[in-house]
């Protein structure tokens, strides 16, 4: 994967900024991925949120739907954690509270993403 850090920043650590372009770049990569994925998701949700349980499970049992849904879950929960991290860093100035919220942010993203992915995989493998 392309990293925009200079070799010098890799060996020296990143100084007072604490990070380089990694956050910016990952936010943009996930943003670009989410353009088609979120359009697909919105269309799927509009079509299937009101359907009965069997129809929803059958929809996500199809690989052609399960794979984009999996990608949408991964890209959106990662993009979410990057965005919420910036908001926490902008508004929370107490160091202890900030660290606690940054941890909570990442844990919540992993929890929500894992729960969604597990449910999806269950439907995909046990139609």
């Amino acid at each position: 994967m392309t990293r925009l850090n200079s070799p010098l920043s890799k060996i020296e650590g990143l100084g007072s900024s604490k990070s380089g372009t990694h956050h910016f770049w990952h936010q943009r990569m996930t943003a670009v991925a989410l353009i088609p994925l979120s359009i697909w998701f919105a269309a799927s949700a509009l079509a299937y949120v009101g359907a009965d349980q069997g129809a929803v499970a059958a929809y996500f049992a199809e690989p052609i739907n399960a794979v984009p849904m999996f990608l949408f879950i991964v890209a959106s929960t990662y993009h979410m954690s990057l965005g919420l991290q910036v908001i926490i860093e902008d508004y929370i100035h107490n160091e202890g509270q900030k660290i606690a919220l940054l941890l909570l942010n990442r844990f919540a993203a992993w929890a929500i993403g894992s729960a969604s992915a597990f449910a999806l995989i269950r439907m995909a493998l046990h139609p």
Binding site: Q53, G54, V56, A57, F60, M80, A115, L120
Partner: peptide, 27 residues
């Protein structure tokens, strides 16, 4: 809207878990 969508992921997670759990949970 970014913060609202973060809340929306909970709704999405609920939808998928309910659909994976069966008709009763989905109801």
């Amino acid at each position: 809207t970014g913060v609202a969508l973060a809340g929306g992921t909970l709704f999405l997670s609920w939808w998928l878990m309910a659909a994976a759990s069966g008709p009763d949970a989905y109801a």
